[in-house]
């Protein structure tokens, strides 16, 4: 009986988890992103933004959108490694030693960065895109095949996002396979799963 009980409770947990997943996915599909000039938003209005709240309200829309900084300036290893690379605190400070922000809300966020840098504490970003550990995704192969600005194929138009959110469930194998089928490239399991 103990075994059955465990089985029951375990399956319930599974079921709840599955439903939560399913619900979230539909929500993501139902809400098409409106496209206002989001960099005009101030952090005070950020409560409605999608995606996880980050320790520093880093604005991809300002950096990559308004200022047109290439993705690879910060995500430096994406063309040579399976990992895209995160900008180091030093890299951020390379600009923000000088750039202090235009309005008070910007200044407040940049101050967080400067304090973290002064205290030699890295900023612990909340991960948005997590791939299951049994799948391997070589970023560099995809950049090589699709070009240096192909990031949005999977990550969406990050240059227009005030706060990064998940446009595509990159952890869903169907998402990968659809593209691989369209492009007539490998869909052998062992290319990613090993």
């Amino acid at each position: 009986m103990r075994k059955l009980a465990l089985f029951g409770s375990g399956s319930l947990a599974l079921l709840v988890g599955a439903m939560a997943l399913a619900q979230r996915d539909t929500r993501a599909q139902q809400a098409p992103a409106p496209a206002p000039p989001v960099w005009m938003l101030s952090p005070r209005d950020s409560s409605g933004l999608r995606g996880p709240r980050q320790p520093v309200f880093f604005r991809h829309d300002i950096h990559a959108g308004l200022n047109k900084i290439p993705c690879q300036y910060c995500h430096y290893s994406v063309a040579e490694s399976s990992e895209p690379g995160l900008p180091t605190t030093q890299a951020c400070m390379g600009c923000h030693l000088v750039i202090g922000g235009t309005d008070s809300s910007h200044k407040a966020e940049i101050k967080k960065l400067r304090e973290a840098s002064a205290q030699k504490q890295p900023i612990q970003w909340v991960r948005v895109h997590t791939l299951a550990r049994h799948a391997h995704f070589p970023h560099m192969r995809h950049i090589k095949a699709l070009g240096p600005n192909a990031c949005q194929t999977c990550h969406g138009d990050v240059a227009r996002m005030a706060q990064v959110f998940k446009v595509n469930n990159v952890n869903n194998m169907g998402f990968c396979i659809t593209c691989h089928l369209q492009r007539k490239v490998t869909r052998d399991c062992s290319v990613c799963h090993y």
């Binding site: 290893s77 040579e80 990992e83 995160l86 180091t88 605190t89 612990q124 970003w125 991960r127 997590t130």
Partner: peptide
């Protein structure tokens, strides 16, 4: 919730994933 923790200073000889 997973955290992404970057390096403070770019290491000369380390590329993540390589």
């Amino acid at each position: 919730v997973e955290k992404l923790v970057p390096y403070l200073v770019q290491s000369e000889d380390q590329v993540p994933g390589v």
